[in-house]
Write a protein that binds this DNA or RNA. Structure first.
Ligand code: FES
Ligand code: FES
Lengths: 141, 141
DNA sequence: GCAATTCCTACCTTTTCAGTATGAATTAAA
DNA sequence: TTTAATTCATACTGAAAAGGTAGGAATTGC
């Protein structure tokens, strides 16, 4: 059970945006340097964040990205799901795919994983982007 | 973020053992058929469960596996960790490996993942094997 | 003795992750 | 108006992990 870099990077980058939100559009180059994430990889991540309306982009020189909402309104769950970091704990069979339920009934652990799923999601729902920034306050560059 | 089959199978198999614990040693063939898991794969899983003293084995014909403790004393966390299903949410750099903390300080999301880790682990600590069996009571075969 | 079983270890196939590479489109500023 | 900085779009690749399979040895009840 592990978190992927894509999800982790997405949250890091969003936290970076929140931290420097008063500096106008933040370029991915800046984020790349500050957070130590490959620029090209960040680009791919931001395509998705933009599609989900978490950020908006400003093209051209001096461009970059800006948060669409204030940090206290952005939930971690929004970020995670935007980059396709689904929580996959269940493994039920569906439409001719393989899965763990035989004989058309749920497996013995189905309920357990379902609860785990909810447990994790409730964590992501509870935490806002703002919570990250507060705890890591630092002087402006 | 997903749960692997190895962990899922381990819990399914242990739940099966709990369910039929009064039938003497349960062979992996039985579990394989009931839970629809490959026999050879189950064998590998049970090596680990045995190493961690969650089950004991009875070799030879009419052999199989038996729980080492009553189902109400076995935590899901014990099972998950026995089969190396670590919860990997953090990504700190360690000993010349790559990681997300540059400049010898923790990244902005470190605390978040650390809390998530604890959140998930507390779930696994809370649930006992017995809880699974109760919810899925079925008549003996 | 034989069949059922655990034990052991090597190998294999597929998928996913994590990132590179390349180039086009856009735009502020010199 | 050129240049440099940027986002946008997409294809590719290498490595690792997941999810098994395969084959056989050791043990033991009947
Ligand atoms: S997880 Fe849904 S049937 Fe097993
Ligand atoms: S998770 Fe520990 S430094 Fe990023």
């Amino acid at each position: 059970m592990k978190l992927t870099n894509k999800g982790r990077y997405a949250v890091m980058a969003m936290a970076d945006l929140a931290q420097f939100k008063d500096n106008g559009p933040i370029s991915l180059t800046d984020i790349s340097l500050r957070q130590n994430i490959s620029l090209a990889y960040l680009e791919q991540i931001f395509i998705k964040l933009k599609q989900e309306n978490l950020v908006k982009s400003v093209r051209g020189a001096k461009g970059g990205y800006v948060l669409e909402s204030p940090p206290e309104e952005i939930k971690i769950s929004n970020i995670i799901s935007a980059v396709d970091e689904k929580i996959k704990t269940l493994n039920c069979k569906k439409e001719s795919k393989k899965g763990c339920n035989n004989k058309s009934s749920k497996c013995i652990t189905h309920n357990l994983w379902d609860q785990l799923d909810q447990h994790i999601n409730s964590f992501f729902e509870k935490v806002k982007l703002q919570d990250l920034v507060k705890k890591n306050q630092m002087v402006d560059r």
